[in-house]
Write a protein that binds this DNA or RNA. Structure first.
Lengths: 221, 221
DNA sequence: CCCTTGCAGATTTTCGAAAAAATTATTATT
DNA sequence: AATAATAATTTTTTCGAAAATCTGCAAGGG
């Protein structure tokens, strides 16, 4: 059975990703305790974990805050993701077995299905598409057999997804995005290491590129 | 001013690295609270952070434990380190400035001094050598300008250092070890990227190699 | 004899309130 | 009127105990 702190942690993570708590704002114990229907102890424990995870910031005796979004920060996430995911993909392509390939094909299929005729105004389908996209990225490196790398990637994906909010309102070409992944998986299954790694690296910076192109960082970000 | 939980966190981290709490053993709230002179709340907060950091494990309603040491786990740490430190070193060598080079030379000097006539039976000097060694590795990638990569590396170094205990009792050739670092820094300062990255990658697995060579993993590790 | 069931003790988890620290408001002083 | 000092308020942090959960053992039934 799960503990109360576990539930609060998960609920908080979801809310932080969905922008329920505005970036830069304070996370007050009392209000959070009320919102998540728990005492201060489990809430504090959840926040402490999320702090080490990089999803909230903490200043001694001043409490927790939601980290601000900035171009610099997103660029850092992209760099870290590129470092981790390319290294992991290399290894996955060296040692990945049939089960890995199978999960990869499966994840790609779900992703493609959720991509079909997607419009960003339907929250449920958007949510499903995001989940499928992240799942595909996890599947890609799951063949590496490195628990630490997988955990790091998962955390970076969560942090990255905070920035997806900024993408709404921008017309995104999902066909191009889908083709990138299809081509990537194709190269991976063909065990064409250099091509696949190169595609992965360039794909990871796509969010940053798009946001740059639309001049999102007006406010000193 | 720092908080009680901060102090306990740091004390616990040090103790875990030094093997004060034996791997595989339980970390009981009451005993920890007494040892660190604090109530259960700060202790639990410290443990929660260390859990997200990967230094302790947690099973719901069963409390915290010290993760066991195993060959598989050390190999994972080495792989993750290689992925992170090589990528970071690449970037540091691209964009690192004079200040970075300076800190690098400085860290190398301290490391070499603490290496001189080192014997593993003097805890203080051993401690200083370890600190200097880790500092050198941090300095190497500090030029990358990526907060996330630096934090990940720092955590992996802490986790790695739990395994250093296994090295005591084994005669280590510190001269060879020292030369590895000297050569690495030389290649880095010469901005010879491929050579430096290659040396870094092979150096990181040295602990694993040495422990393998001496057959440390008798007990199903 | 083995397997379930129920209880006692130990331990983790959570709560509610006290203590400590920071923030805001107020008063005093130059 | 501006600054410093002090008081009041809010919020974080910590404590001590209650509640929930787990563990080991013994009794009862198949």
């Amino acid at each position: 059975m799960t503990t109360l702190a576990d539930n609060v942690e998960q609920a908080l993570r979801t809310d932080l990703v969905n922008g329920v708590h505005p970036p830069g704002g304070r996370l007050q114990m009392e209000k959070l305790a009320e919102r998540y229907g728990a005492g201060m102890s489990p809430v504090r424990e959840a926040l402490s974990r999320l702090y080490s995870e990089g999803l909230v910031s903490l200043e001694s005796n001043k409490g927790f805050r939601v980290p601000v979004l900035s171009r610099e920060d997103l660029a850092d996430i992209a760099f870290a993701r590129a470092a981790i995911e390319t290294a992991a993909l290399r290894r996955a392509m060296e040692r990945g077995d049939m089960a890995w390939e199978s999960s990869l094909v499966s994840a790609l299929h779900v992703y493609r299905q959720t991509s079909r005729n997607l419009d960003t105004s339907d929250p449920d389908r958007l949510q499903a598409w995001q989940a499928a996209h992240d799942q595909l990225h996890r599947a890609l490196i799951s063949g590496s057999g490195s628990p630490r790398i997988e955990k790091m990637q998962a955390r970076l994906l969560v942090q990255h997804s905070r920035y997806r909010q900024l993408l709404y309102g921008i017309p995104i070409d999902f066909d191009v995005h889908e083709r990138e992944h299809v081509d990537l998986v194709e190269a991976v299954l063909a065990r064409d290491v250099e091509t696949a790694v190169g595609m992965m690296a360039s794909h990871i910076t796509i969010t940053l590129d798009v946001l740059d192109q639309w001049g999102i960082w007006k406010d000193a970000g």
